[in-house]
Structure formats: C-alpha cells, structure tokens
Amino acid sequence: MTWADYLIFAAAVILTPLIGGLITGLDRKVTALIQGRYGPPVLQPFYDVVKLLSKEKMIVNDFQIFAAYIYLLSAILSVGFFAIKADLLMIIFIMSIGLVFYVIGALATRSPYSQVGAQRELMQMLAYEPLLIFVLIGMYYVAGSFNLHDIMSHGRLLLDLPLIFVVLSLVLDIKIKKSPFDFSTSEHAHQELVRGILTDYAGPYLALIEIADWYELVLLLAMLAIFWSQNLVIGALISLFVFFLDIIVDNISARMTLKWMLSFSWIVGISFTVLNIAYLYFSNVSR
C-alpha cells in the first residue's frame, strides 16, 4: 500500500456514511411519495442516528455490544478495501464475518423476538451468500482474477454478464431487507417481529448498526456500479436505478415466506449464473 492508498481508504471510510445516509433518506422520501404522503426530510436518517447516539446506554449483556462493534468494524474495513481495489473475494469474506457477529449478538440475548430474528437472518444469509459467490465466479470467468483492479479494467461487465447483474440486484434486495424479503427485521412502519434482530439493541448501539448498514448498502451499490467501470458515473446511475426499482418492489409487494425466498433466490441465482456462463463459453468457442 502506498500513501495514496491510505488516503483513499480514509476518504472512503469518512465519506461512505454520508452517502449511505443520504441514499437512505432519499429512500424514505421516495417511499413516502409513492404512498401519497409528504414524507420526512431527506436528512432524517442523520437526525435519527445523532439522536440515538446521545440516548441513554441500555444494554442486555456485554457480548451484544462487542458484536455490534465488530459488525461496524467489518463493514468499515470491507468498504475501505473496496476503495483501494483489493481482492473482491476477501472483501466479501470480511463482510460475512461482521454479519455472523451481528447474528450471534442477537442470539446472545434472551428476547424471543431477537432470537427468531437472528434465525431468520441466518436463513437470509443462506439465501444470498451463495449468490454473491456465483457473482464472483462470473466476474472471475470474464476477468480472470478476483482482484478488483483487474475486474474494473474490463470496462463493461454488464454486456458480458447481464444475468449475473440481475443476480447481484437480487442480492441487494435481500441484503437491505426490503419487502418481500424483510424477514429478520424491517423498516419502521412494517414492524416485523417488533424489530426482529434489532429488538435488544437500544440507543447508541442501534446507531452503530444503522451506520454499519449504510456502509453495506454503499458497498453493494458500488459492486453494482463496477459493472460499468468504464465510466463510473454511468455505473453509479445504473446502481441507483436498481435501488429505485427495489424501492418500487418494496412498495408493491407483501412479505413472503422464508421457504419461498430460499427456493426463489437459489433457483434464480443458479439458473441465471449457469445460463450466463454457458452463453459466454459457447460464444467464446464459436469465435
């Protein structure tokens, strides 16, 4: 790593929550407009987090707090490594470590809501983690490396991997827990299982998790954006468009069952990946 890398790392870590908060605020505003309401101000997520940070600390046990910090740390690290174009496989694994702690933290309390929420979060991870690996396999097939630098030098992955792009969009939808995939917890108005996996996090620790969620949201949007890495502005627009579609799907669909989610995500994920890679293989052979 050079000094420039350190600078980029620090800049990404500082700027990402600002971007993530803004995107979440826009999400709430757009959702309100779709529902015919006026909606909260765009800066609302920042108000929420600042308020939560200054509330009384109310904890159930120490491990829960440790887990919240690890979740945030892993989210920060994965975004930072993404910014300096490290190995994509490693980034995904760092992200998963944080998620495992997030689940264990919720399992460490005795509230049944948080227990059930944690179990469901595990199921959700089971649904999207294999798909993330499929996406990486597709990228490896095209770029010949897991290194982000090599993947990005390819330019227009979207033209080679259109179906895998769809798979990654599905991952985004499951990951940010929008309907029909909001099982383990949900946005305020939906109130799944009181607050599901977040039930026993209160005050500042809830804020930590909220910030970590912003990091992960931006990470996934950035992963969508590198499908058009030739011009990252177009890439960002594409990923924001996918996010907008997610908001619309969130508003027009009801929550489904866990079983449905597993079969849907795996069938779509596996078939789309196989189709896409088979297409690439045969088009290479005929060339």
Binding site: A32, G39, P40, K51, Q191, R195, T199, L206
Partner: peptide
C-alpha cells in the same frame, strides 16, 4: 397520508427500547 406524522420524523415503533 392525510395526517402523515412522519413529516416531523415521527415513526411508530413497536419496541419501547427504541422509543422516545
């Protein structure tokens, strides 16, 4: 939609641990 208390940032939470 007619009254929409979320325009003041108020949300209805189900969990007293999150509430103000």
């Amino acid at each position: 939609p007619i009254y929409d208390m979320e325009r003041f940032g108020m949300v209805n939470v189900g969990n007293p641990k999150h509430a103000d």
